[in-house]
Nucleic acid binder design. Structure first.
Lengths: 139, 139
DNA sequence: CTTGACCCTATAGTGGCTAGAGGGTGCAGC
DNA sequence: GCTGCACCCTCTAGCCACTATAGGGTCAAG
């Protein structure tokens, strides 16, 4: 009996909101194991693959790098292990995200300041261009 | 008389807080014009180059893409032009930055929620791993 | 058989750098 | 003049996470 839960790559893509080329990419870099093939050389994915790919995509959506996801997958497979390592990964990632937010907020403030200095006119009187041209270079 | 303001690439790099390889990269992609060379094939940069590179670096620091900077440079060279185009570039960039901040804040909230659900223990009881494994996949 | 939807591999590209290999130049000190 | 060190040069490939494209095969309905 043909296993009804085996998926072709397009089905898996639809089921997980992933592009087909991205699935192939993940296989290439070893993040997703290569599945068995049909007689026609089509990939045949099981539920296990679908679950793993969903995990990957959720983690990506949360901004984890592929290497971090690799680590999370390894941790998740080790069911007897203490989950402090997972906590540490999430914590450090959260810190990075918060740092990035702070950076962007500083950047946004400066852009707003520049915008507010603009009074219209021509380029040779442009306060924005002036700001980009004349402030001391930050190291 | 040798022009005292001519800089070697290392000097220009130091003066503008840019890496040498980055200066060469900008020249390669046409963002910074190729300077004249010494007899020994060293690049000889003028004040004009330094000013242009400073402009580029300030714009990069504000998160503008190289293509946007290309556009800003063109606008800044057209001194009789109305500066509304500059304003528009800055505005749309600010919107992008604000959108990115909002995205990251949503992401940070979710990571915090995940962290707070963690009660320690082993992986098979790990709420973080559960969250990554079981939520409905977002399209 | 034909056709259209789907699948396959391989390669190169995106953006903004960055690293490294292999070789040349300039100048101070001996 | 020679040496050694700091600097310069070109070229190529790589980083990260995809993404596009070329060229060809498979499958199933009509």
């Amino acid at each position: 009996m043909t296993e009804p839960s085996l998926l072709r790559i397009g089905d898996l893509a639809a089921a997980t909101g992933t592009k087909i080329v991205t699935i192939r990419y993940y296989e290439k870099i070893g993040l997703l194991p290569a599945p068995p093939r049909t007689g026609g050389n089509y990939r045949a994915y099981s539920t296990t693959h679908r679950e793993r790919l969903s995990f990957i995509r959720r983690s990506r959506a949360l901004g984890f790098t592929l290497d971090e996801i690799r680590e999370l997958l390894e941790l998740s497979a080790d069911t007897e292990r203490d989950c402090a390592a997972v906590d540490r990964l999430v914590t450090s990632h959260l810190v990075e995200v918060e740092d990035k937010i702070a950076d962007l907020q500083r950047l946004a403030s400066e852009l707003r300041r520049m915008k507010e200095s603009c009074r219209g006119g021509t380029i040779d009187d442009c306060r924005i261009i002036e700001a980009l041209s004349s402030q001391p270079t930050l190291p």
